[in-house]
Design a protein around this nucleic acid. Structure first.
Length: 224
DNA sequence: TCATTAAATTGTT
DNA sequence: AACAATTTAATGA
């Protein structure tokens, strides 16, 4: 995905919107570039915009006072997030960091609220997205306690390809094994082994800094 | 286009 | 956590 226009065309919530709605949205959204490693939003910042990943990859993460890094979710191109904080009018609770060079769309809060007030399609999309996220996080808690690391890595990877949250078409994700480890709650070394196991099972293909998903269903149900 | 080098990532202990 | 090996990207001939 390269441009905001591509992303809007792919985002389910734009379907069913009138031309006036779309024009107003296009005019309101700002697109900014972020270098790999840079912070898109910092914990404590006012939630002044709904955020979309046009291109690249960002992570939602938190740094403990002692310096431990926890990643809650990776958001690939096609994903929108931050509606929780905007809806509640609260400052951001987490840091958003670009994992590689990323193009980020920012929809101002006013536009977001206006969409909420005027578009049923938009409300339906948000409901679906919130529900999908809830399922993802409940699954994470469950798997964290029940599944072995191979399966946790499989799930973390599959989560990046959730078709409802990230309507992307490419089966690749450019991510290091270290970052995958933060996502899966496993060490880099363990991720390295897990990836080999999953590749051996024909579910994925592993290249330098790149993972290709061959069998998304198989990944999701791996280890059950 | 090719060789060299630094940086990032991976593989192993 | 440490170290070696590999891959990539950038640079300049």
């Amino acid at each position: 995905m390269r441009s905001l226009e591509d992303m809007l065309a792919l985002s389910p919530w734009t379907r069913g919107l009138s031309a006036e709605h779309l024009d107003r949205i296009r005019a309101a959204i700002m697109v900014r570039e972020f270098e790999a490693g840079s912070t898109v939003c910092r914990k404590g910042d006012p939630a002044s915009a709904w955020v979309g990943v046009v291109d690249g990859l960002v992570k939602i993460h938190s740094l403990s006072p002692s310096g431990k890094s926890v990643t809650f979710a990776g958001i690939p191109a096609g994903g929108w997030f931050g509606e929780g904080s905007v809806l509640k009018g609260e400052p951001l609770k987490y840091d958003i960091v670009a994992l590689r060079d990323s193009r980020i769309a920012l929809m101002p809060e006013a536009t977001f609220r206006w969409l909420l007030d005027t578009s049923i399609a938009f409300n339906q999309f948000l409901l679906k997205q919130l529900n999908e996220r809830l399922g993802q996080f409940i699954g994470m808690v469950e798997h964290d306690r029940l599944l072995e690391p191979d399966a946790r890595v499989a799930r973390a990877l599959a989560a990046l390809f959730n078709p409802h949250l990230y309507p992307v078409t490419e089966p690749h994700i450019q991510i290091s094994q270290e970052e995958l480890g933060y996502l899966a709650g496993a060490s880099r070394q363990r991720v390295n082994r897990a990836l080999r196991v999953l590749a051996g099972a024909g579910l994925i293909k592993v290249d330098y800094g790149l993972v290709t998903v061959l069998d998304l269903n198989g990944l999701q149900r791996y280890g059950i």
